[in-house]
Design a protein around this nucleic acid. Structure first.
Length: 302
DNA sequence: GTCCGGACGC
DNA sequence: GCGTCGGGAC
């Protein structure tokens, strides 16, 4: 395929996706310029490995309580962990506060606008930095997440994307098809991601409702390998340390503020006391809990 | 059972 | 590159 063909084909795809986005974009509260760059960053961190429908109420109360980085930077850790609630992966909450402290302290409460400065912040990796640059600052940069990888691979290559980290080929593809025009590039990132979230889903894509079905190499090829394992295998949950850690933390969040859970109560949370002890130790290592001399647990009071 | 708008340590 | 880190929805 000649380069000009690729550009033309993509221009048509971008146009259809853009129209679809205008008509179908979910009305999430951090979209359409209704929040600050910090608000966008918070939404992206909360969305890491978590569905948007679950994020929305958390984001709203979080931003009401801590509207900017400085406010979050000064909040008690225990309150931050409690407010994270059942979003999962609570280390994200601590990293988000560390990020807020860096932004407030090093950048005068204004998010930096370069990829290198953003990825240097705690909890901000390639995806989140790119998403903030594109969605909050309107910069032209290829955003690469699991949805975009899946959609681009299907549409332009005709195969399912593989698990693990994004390959060099996937990154090259994302950069190649990213519209040259800055504004179009932002809409492109958002609409491709949105399509992956609500139409071009992993297991059961709604090709009948897809605005670019006509342009899709994967559909043309008969959707080869659909439903096969493509993404990196996910961990089980039942019986894992993650479940036990979650139980311990949930018990501490449920306590009256400033109080602790005595050792005998802790031991009732899980019957494998070896695993329980290891999980308590790892929560302590992460800075998510504090262990008193008598073995009682509490959220960090610092 | 599978998947979900990843980041990080090693 | 691989293991770990929640919890919910379908």
């Amino acid at each position: 395929m000649k380069a000009q063909d690729a550009f033309d084909a993509n221009a048509e795809v971008a146009l259809r996706l853009g129209a679809w986005w205008e008509a179908n974009a979910r009305d999430l509260p951090w979209r359409f310029g209704r929040t600050t760059p910090w608000g966008v960053l918070v939404s992206e961190v909360m969305s890491q490995q978590t569905q948007m429908s679950r994020v929305v109420p958390y984001w709203q109360s979080w931003m009401e309580r801590w509207p900017d980085a400085r406010a979050l930077a000064d909040a008690p850790k225990a309150e931050v962990i409690t407010a994270w609630g059942r979003l999962g992966y609570p280390r994200r909450a601590l990293r988000l506060q560390e990020c807020a402290q860096a932004v407030a302290g090093q950048y005068a409460d204004e998010l930096p606008q370069t990829y290198d400065a953003l990825t240097a912040l705690p909890g901000i990796g390639d995806y989140t930095a790119s998403a903030v640059l594109s969605f909050a600052f309107g910069r032209r940069i290829a955003v690469i997440d699991t949805n975009i990888r899946r959609v681009l691979s299907r549409v332009f290559v005709g195969t399912e994307s593989r698990g693990g980290a994004a390959s060099a080929a996937e990154r090259a593809l994302a950069n190649r098809v990213l519209p040259k025009d800055v504004k179009r590039s932002v809409t492109w990132n958002q609409s491709v991601m949105e399509l992956g979230a609500v139409v071009c889903t992993a297991k059961n894509p709604l090709c009948d409702a897809c605005p670019i079905a006509h342009d899709c190499a994967f559909l043309k090829a008969g959707r080869p390998g659909l439903g096969e394992k493509r993404t990196r295998p996910r961990q089980r949950f039942q019986g894992t340390d993650r479940q036990v850690r979650g139980l311990v933390l949930a018990a501490l969040r449920a306590l009256p503020a400033g109080t602790s859970l005595e050792r005998s109560k802790v031991e009732q949370l899980w019957k494998d006391h070896g695993q329980l002890a290891a999980c308590v130790a790892s929560l302590d290592d992460d800075g998510l809990i504090e262990i008193a001399k008598d073995g009682s647990l509490s959220l960090p009071q610092g």
